[in-house]
């Protein structure tokens, strides 16, 4: 049998992809948007309560309260992941529970827990930052690049 001609193959692939796109079920956009909005908003609402607790009762300044607030939210996200609840929330809410910092905590705890069976060093320690690692890398790089630019502009 003759080898496939790459040009004809590309055309067949494109035609097939059109058929796939046409038959593929569309995501329920509206439902997903509403779920993301409600859950994402609700998590931030809880964050605001926590923040106001630190500023109101413990008399911290808004700036001082930022750290404890995110730490508390991270604890909540981590704990719900441990209990096996956060993945259920995620199934319902999509980005609504991925984007808040609780989702960041979920992305740390879930691989750490998952790979415990591969040991505490290479499993828990090694896999903990499989998703959160890239976030830290890009956040750090962004802040350093912006910092350098701003420093250069000043001097």
């Amino acid at each position: 049998m003759a080898k496939k001609n790459p040009n004809i193959q590309q055309q067949i692939n494109d035609e097939y992809d059109q058929l796939v796109q046409q038959m593929k079920p569309k995501p329920p956009y509206l439902r997903n948007i509403i779920a993301a909005f409600l859950v994402g908003g609700f998590i931030c609402l809880i964050g605001q309560f926590v923040n106001n607790f630190y500023t109101g009762y413990l008399k911290l300044s808004v700036k001082e309260a930022a750290g404890p607030t995110s730490a508390t939210m991270i604890f909540l996200g981590a704990f719900l992941t441990g209990l096996g609840v956060y993945d259920e929330i995620g199934k319902f809410a999509g980005a609504g529970s991925i984007v808040p910092i609780t989702g960041f905590a979920n992305s740390i705890v879930s691989p750490a827990m998952e790979f415990k069976r591969e040991g505490y060093v290479l499993g828990v320690g090694g896999k903990m930052f499989t998703v959160a690692g890239p976030v830290l890398v890009y956040a750090t790089i962004t802040s350093i690049v912006i910092g350098l630019i701003s420093w250069l502009l000043k001097s």
């Binding site: 593929k24 997903n32 993945d87 199934k91 999509g94 979920n106 879930s110 998703v131």
Partner: peptide
Amino acid sequence: ERQYRYPTEQGVQRPLT
């Protein structure tokens, strides 16, 4: 799931396909 996709407790939405 853990080999091909996500850790089982990660909160992700699976597409309809």
